[in-house]
Simulated assay, not measured.
Amino acid sequence: MEFKGTQSILAPRDIVWRCLNDPAMLQACVPGCESFTAVSEDEFLAVVVAAVGPVKAKFKGNLILSERIEGISYKISGKGEGGIAGFGKMNAEVSLVDIEGGTELTYLSTAEVGGKLAQIGSRLVSSVANKLADEFFKRFNTNVSALADASAEG
């Protein structure tokens, strides 16, 4: 499954980049995230509750940031185990460019699932995964834009 999208964020690129590397900001943007703990500068442990059709599960996994090019791009790799529900893996490339009035964030993501989740049907799983990715980046946009706005006022 492959997903892509773009968000125009009303914030300078340095603020967007800083937020992309801030564990508290990332946790606030992940739908269903119950915990998000830094293991190192590049690795985080997360617990996320997600529902895909009739299957609702608590996924425990990790997220690794790699191939960082300061202020420009990085890769996110994540995998989670949901017990009997199965597993999920995700990789995303995130890049930033300056646009008038802010920053354009573009992502290209791939995901795969196994176990019970894979039996539900790829169309439903793909739809939910795409919705979760879209929700993450919409929340990120809202939170970062608000932060930049508050910084500009203060």
Rank of each mutant, 00 (worst) to 15 (best):
C19H: 01
L20A: 05
L20C: 01
L20F: 07
L20D: 06
L20P: 04
N21T: 09
N21Y: 11
D22A: 11
D22P: 04
D22C: 04
D22H: 10
P23C: 13
P23E: 13
P23N: 13
M25G: 07
M25W: 05
M25S: 05
M25L: 05
L26V: 03
Q27W: 08
C29Y: 00
P31Y: 08
G32H: 01
G32E: 03
G32L: 04
E34N: 08
E34T: 00
S35M: 11
S35Q: 11
F36P: 05
F36L: 06
T37Q: 12
A38K: 10
A38D: 08
A38V: 05
V39W: 12
V39L: 13
S40P: 03
S40R: 08
S40D: 14
E41K: 14
F44Y: 12
F44G: 02
F44C: 06
F44S: 06
F44L: 09
A46T: 02
V47W: 10
V48N: 02
V48W: 02
V49I: 15
V52T: 01
V52A: 02
V52N: 02
V52W: 10
G53I: 14
G53Q: 14
V55C: 14
V55P: 14
K56F: 04
A57R: 01
A57Q: 02
A57M: 04
K58M: 02
F59L: 15
K60Y: 07
K60D: 03
K60T: 02
L63I: 15
L63M: 14
I64D: 12
I64V: 15
I64R: 15
S66D: 11
R68V: 08
I69S: 10
I69Q: 13
I69K: 10
E70W: 12
E70S: 03
G71L: 07
I72H: 15
S73G: 09
S73E: 13
Y74N: 07
Y74R: 06
K75F: 06
K75M: 13
I76Y: 00
S77A: 15
S77I: 07
K79T: 03
K79H: 06
K79C: 04
G80F: 04
G80C: 11
G83V: 06
G83I: 10
I84E: 14
I84V: 15
A85T: 02
A85R: 05
A85H: 01
G86L: 07
